[in-house]
Design a protein around this nucleic acid. Structure first.
Length: 212
DNA sequence: AGATTGATCCAT
DNA sequence: TGGATCAATCTG
């Protein structure tokens, strides 16, 4: 089998994409591909394997956290050491530890000084280029990070430049898995019952098969 | 339904 | 400085 350099074909999402309204970005991230490149230990690479492992993950579930008034958002408490990244430039990673055990991965969106980000809640890991059934469905933000080996070392990573973590669009590859396109389910965000009127905002987006 | 686990944030 | 809280997950 001829190896294919998928990364050459894929188009990395640029600043313009992330800079838009958080809710639109959250919706539009569905069907894009999250790319995670992990350096293997030198010794392992020397034994004949590739020096880097590439994980390609179709984004299937997102949530928007939008602005200083969104009580579900960490940034609603204002600018702190932790949340300052959410106030910064779009296209950065915001990774934080939750419940002392799990990481959550967000992508900063919107204009500078407007705190906003999209939480990646679910992906479909593309293990190979064979039928869909070979792929691995990951549901839950903690599991996404575990599977893609995302931890706080990637906090503030610039997805516009990074060689470790970024998002691409590839319509051909998407069509392979969703030949008839897909629908988007919209719902309330998970685990934000404390957020007053913001708890009911329909800012959760789930990719689903047509008719499914 | 309960346990887990530690960074974060705000009130002492 | 203390302690309540938490954008979650697993087990039973």
């Amino acid at each position: 089998m001829t190896p294919i350099n998928w990364l050459r074909i894929m188009k990395r999402l640029r600043k313009k994409f992330y800079e838009r309204n958080t809710i639109k970005v959250a919706r539009d991230l569905l069907g894009k591909f999250l790319i995670r490149i992990i350096a293997r230990p030198h010794r392992q690479a020397k034994l004949g394997g590739q020096s880097k492992k590439k994980i390609i993950a179709l984004i299937t579930e997102t949530e928007a956290y939008h602005g200083p008034k969104d009580l579900a958002s960490h940034a609603s408490r204002g600018r702190t050491k932790r949340t300052e990244v959410m106030f910064g430039l779009a296209g950065r990673a915001y990774v934080y530890l939750i419940y002392g055990m799990y990481y959550c991965f967000n992508i900063v969106t919107g204009k500078e000084n407007f705190p906003a980000a999209v939480l990646i809640r679910g992906v479909e890991i593309i293990n190979n280029l064979k039928p869909k059934t070979y792929n691995q469905l990951i549901s839950g933000p903690g599991k996404v990070c575990r599977e893609l080996k995302i931890d706080r070392s990637l906090n503030k990573e610039n997805l516009l430049k990074s060689k470790k973590l970024f998002v691409v669009e590839d319509k051909k590859l998407l069509k392979k898995y969703y030949p008839q396109g897909f629908k988007i389910k919209i719902g309330k965000r998970v685990g934000v019952d404390y957020a007053g009127e913001y708890r009911n905002k329909p800012w959760r987006f789930i990719l689903s098969c047509r008719g499914g």
